[in-house]
Structure formats: structure tokens, C-alpha cells
Nucleic acid binder design. Structure first.
Lengths: 111, 111
DNA sequence: AAAATAGTTTGCCAAATGGTGAACTTTTTA
DNA sequence: TAAAAAGTTCACCATTTGGCAAACTATTTT
């Protein structure tokens, strides 16, 4: 569970971009090549590769090249690290008051 | 539950900075003034106020001024929005395989 | 009334971010 | 073997970020 702070910085930052979140969503369905992942987006491959690198550097995905094709895969551990920070905050808040349950209900009701 | 995308962008970005995460953590204990929130950090007030603004713009906190003092408060709804995106991803992954449980266990075991 | 406190506004800066096009390498495929 | 496909590298660009100092406005305190 090493160096949390920097890891959280990078992971939250990685998730702050819609292109990168979309890549994550795609990868949830299973591994995919860079090319196929890039297709939904109207940006060049060099730009897209930067996003892949950001995701890889923070540990959200991993990739390997075989022949001329690079295949990416999700690494759920890193998502759990982030989820954990959030739920810890939630726990802090809940220990102070228990209004959060109401908020969540209200939020769910809005859908 | 309006405009999720932009809201997620801004909220993830807000959480990608350690100063801002620390402010969130402080506020989990209850409302506090800008000054008291800024004390742990070796940065000037103008810089600190930018962080407050980022947190307020994405809806993670709210604040109000009374006299010369501005008091900030956490707004847990926005945290829940982020938690939700993450747990949706986790659900996607779990629907594909159930190895995540193992990962989480392994992670928890490391503490 | 004078001084301290808490914030705000302004203008500045270096570095990081997210994009581009062009040129290049390495496989595959035709 | 020639051409297409999939990345990669490079140099460049505008914008955003996160910091600063200085000057300013209110409000408490003393």
C-alpha cells in the first residue's frame, strides 16, 4: 500500500479527463488494442498515446506489444485504491453525522 | 443528476491535488474557516483561495462569508457522484469476471 | 483612532497539459 | 516486393495550473 499520496494525485488526475475515463469504460469490457480504443475519438494517435501513457503511469491500465499491435488491459487494483480513499472520507463524515444516507437516497431518487 | 461528464471532469481534477484532498479531509471533521484550513500549508492565501474556488466550483464544498470570515463546509453529494462512477466501473468489471474480490482482499491484506 | 486580521484583486511567472503535423520504424498483408 | 497498418518520435503550440508578491477592502480588536 506504498506511497499513497502521489499515487492518488496521478490516478485522480488520470480520471479527470473524459477521453481517459472512456478508455477505462471500454477496457472494462475486456482487453483491446490502442487502435480500437482510439477509434471513438476525433484526435490523432500521438495525442491518444499520451492518454494511454497517463493511464499506464498511474497504474490504471497495463499494456504489452505483440508484433505491431499494443494491447491494453485494465488494472482494477488502482481503481480500488481511489474508491477506498473516497469511502474513507465517507466514513469520516458518517462518523460525524448520519445525514449522508439521506443524501444518497435523495440522489438515487433523482434518477 | 444533470451533466455528469463535466461534473466528473471537474471533481476528479479537484481531487487530484494533495492540498485540496487535505482540505476535504479537514472539512470531514466539520465546517472551518479559510484561515484555519490554510494553516497546515506553506502557501500564501491567494494561492490557497484558488484551491478553495476549485473545490467550490465542482460542488465539493460550499462557503459563506460572515463579517470578514469565510466558513467552508463539505458537500458530500459530490463525493457520492464520484464514488458512484467508480462503483459502476467496478460492477462492469465484476460482471465480466469475479476476480476483483480477490484483488480487494489482497489489497486489504497488505495493511 | 490605530493596528491587526481575514480575505480579495491584480499582474506576473514557470511548468504541465492536451492538442497538432510530419517523419520514422516495424510488422503484416496483398 | 510493394503497400498498408499500427505505433512511435519529434518539434511545436495555446491554454491551464499552481505558485508568487504587492496593493487593496473590510471588519474586529486593542
Amino acid at each position: 500500500m506504498a506511497n499513497n499520496e502521489l499515487s492518488l494525485d496521478r490516478t485522480f488526475h488520470a480520471l479527470s479527463d473524459p477521453t481517459r475515463r472512456s478508455v477505462i469504460e471500454q477496457l472494462m469490457g475486456g482487453p483491446a488494442t490502442v487502435k480500437s480504443l482510439s477509434e471513438p475519438f476525433a484526435i490523432g494517435l500521438p495525442s491518444f498515446m499520451k492518454h494511454i501513457k497517463v493511464l499506464e503511469d498511474c497504474g490504471l491500465i497495463s499494456s504489452q506489444k505483440k508484433g505491431r499491435v499494443r494491447t491494453c488491459e485494465i488494472n482494477p487494483v488502482q481503481l480500488v485504491v481511489v474508491e477506498k480513499w473516497l469511502s474513507e472520507q465517507r466514513a469520516l463524515w458518517e462518523s460525524r453525522t448520519d445525514r449522508l444516507a439521506e443524501y444518497v437516497e435523495a440522489l438515487n431518487a433523482k434518477e
